[in-house]
Design a protein around this nucleic acid. Structure first.
Lengths: 204, 204
DNA sequence: TCGTTTCGGTACGCATACGTATCGATGAGT
DNA sequence: ACTCATCGATACGTATGCGTACCGAAACGA
């Protein structure tokens, strides 16, 4: 798709020969993560990434020794804390906002996690990178919300449902495609928070 | 001839085997599902299954045309409804009992689903088989529990949390290894039902 | 007892992918 | 303008796995 017009050999700057820039590196990372989402970790090939980014295998292998190391670098680079900036002043507001935020990237991240599926249990390094780059920060941010809610007195610190909130949030996110065939969107997740999570916490 | 005893069919007849019996077939199915759990779908090889069951590749390919068809047959044969026989008389009791039951096979089934990961999105036939053999029956059984609860008047039919119960149950099951590194056991699941699911349904 | 069936073992062809090596082309610094 | 580092292309060696073909041997039925 988006194939460029067949250009003369001397036209168009499509031939990149300069040193790899950070932007160029991000193209590689985006490409490999996209292919993982689409084909699964095992089916992703260095050749495929090279072709889709119009670079050569050599270029990839010059930067990263092996495929797992390449994927790990891509995961690390795509690390973001999506629950990070949320602080509405109430736990209910925070959780709803988190649900809304989650709906936006649910498809991409859920699919990535799904497609990495078994690879993360086979390759310890990959598993570690995935956890510290994508999983742990989100959990920490979510638990920070809960901590603030407890601090404000909205929920008792020993409320039995507290420890299950992260599992509920991420679990529902991840299981939706299996149950209904579609990824969880913001509406669904907000509805879930309002109908199940908040009541479980006694925040009707 | 027949100087060797080797009479009983179940006396560790190591060498040759006669026509494939249903028990023998189950050995093949168990082997391939075990290997999927351990190595992931893509890494499972017909050669590996043949070696671990001490049969030959030819034997496998005589029964099943391709690897996906073989795996599909194995999934179909392993179909069971684990939430099937549960009916304690109350919704709370049913859900707790389901949680307990789920704890028993959580590791195996969660791992299988995880290791099939992307394969089910790539191979439509596999996806269909997995759904109708392992997923849909459980969902149906769970919803039957909920239906009975509504019928008994324990929960209002339009209770907003109702539609999220399957997602909560299976979602938490599936996400636990990602969050804590261990599979959900019966204690954890029962605790989750009591602390989160029942309160969300207003069943204190 | 004898023939038919099916098994287990193995070799083969084909395809794919990893990772390496080589080579010409080209952009960047001086 | 010249040199050097790096890029893109490509060929190569190795390994692996799918699916097929062939063969001798063992089991089952008549």
């Amino acid at each position: 798709m988006t194939s460029q017009a067949a250009d003369g050999p001397e036209t168009v700057a499509s031939s990149r020969r300069s040193k790899i820039t950070p932007e160029r590196e991000r193209e590689f990372f985006d490409a490999v993560l996209d292919q993982i989402r689409e084909c699964g970790y095992d089916s992703v090939t260095m050749e495929g990434v090279a072709a889709s980014t119009r670079c050569s295998k050599s270029t990839l292998y010059r930067q990263w020794k092996t495929k797992p190391q390449f994927v790990a670098a891509a995961l690390r680079a795509s690390s973001r804390v999506r629950f990070g900036g949320i602080d509405t002043g109430s736990l209910a507001g925070d959780l709803c906002e988190a649900a809304r935020a989650a709906g936006d990237w649910s498809g991409k991240d859920t699919r990535l996690l799904q497609s990495l599926g078994h690879a993360i249990t086979a390759d310890h390094a990959l598993k570690g990178v995935l956890r510290e780059a994508l999983v742990d920060p989100e959990i920490a941010a979510l638990q920070e919300m809960l901590r603030r809610g407890v601090e404000r007195g909205e929920v008792r610190a020993d409320h039995p449902a507290l420890e299950y909130v992260p599992a509920m949030m991420f679990g529902v996110l991840r299981i939706r495609p299996v149950l209904t065939g579609q990824y969880a969107d913001a509406d669904y997740l907000v509805g879930f928070v309002e109908a199940a999570v908040l009541p479980a916490l006694g925040l009707t």
